[in-house]
């Protein structure tokens, strides 16, 4: 069964938002896009049962946003509370500012920062580096597919990607369908004699471990 991972993108510039959307479609992601923080929060709130992005790409400076009902800080706080296993990258032209850095990390202590002045290509490279994790004989390609490198077999499921990008942390899954997908991934690892195995900690909590 295939399920493309989701990404939430907040960018107030419509052209840049479209560029990012196309980039993630090319990577086989399902992008959720918004030009304002309030729209992004609504999108996430309204789809919380069915949609849990593995990545949030957030523009800190929203001068072109169609509304200012909520701030970027509100979105980051929402993600920290409701989507704690979502990787977050925040980009800003003011990333050197102590005040901005402090505000971002008080809203989301695990957020990664990127300097907008380094350009769009640099942002994409940075995202690729965040997502293209390797764990022993497993590799995440384009952030959306897990590959067993000795056989080149692919496992297409967002929950498998989520586990690999969070290795060795414990990840909590939020639905029966997600935990079923995780167990299928565990079976797939065993079938491929992978050195990586799935460990269950109960209560829908799982992590990957490497066999010694």
């Amino acid at each position: 069964m295939r399920a493309n991972p989701e990404v939430i993108i907040l960018e107030d510039d419509p052209e840049k938002l479209e560029d990012l959307r196309q980039e993630f479609i090319r990577k086989r992601f399902h992008p959720l896009t918004a030009r304002s923080a309030s729209r992004a929060i609504s999108l996430l709130k309204n789809n919380l049962e069915s949609s849990r992005p593995i990545l949030a790409v957030v523009d800190w400076d929203l001068s072109k946003a169609p509304d200012n009902i909520s701030t970027t800080s509100d979105l980051l706080t929402f993600i920290a509370h409701e989507l704690s296993d979502c990787l977050v990258i925040v980009y800003s032209a003011n990333v050197d500012s102590f005040r901005v850095r402090s505000e971002i990390h008080r809203s989301h202590p695990r957020a990664w920062l990127h300097d907008k002045r380094e350009g769009d290509a640099s942002l994409i490279e940075r995202i690729d580096r965040m997502l293209e994790q390797t764990v022993e004989d497993l590799k995440v390609k384009d952030g959306s597919v897990v590959i067993h490198t000795p056989t080149n077999d692919e496992h297409h499921h967002r929950e498998a990607v989520r586990l690999v990008v969070h290795y060795p942390e414990i990840v909590t899954f939020h639905s029966d369908s997600a935990t079923k997908a995780v167990r299928r991934f565990g079976d797939w690892l065993a079938k491929h004699d992978s050195r990586v195995t799935l460990i269950s900690h109960g209560n829908r909590k799982y992590r990957l471990t490497v066999m010694q």
Binding site: D74, A80, H108, P109
Partner: peptide, 18 residues
Amino acid sequence: MTDTSSTELGMMVPDTMR
């Protein structure tokens, strides 16, 4: 900037990470 109390801030979300 909206007024967010410390309890609501993301930094107060319980986390097992070191």
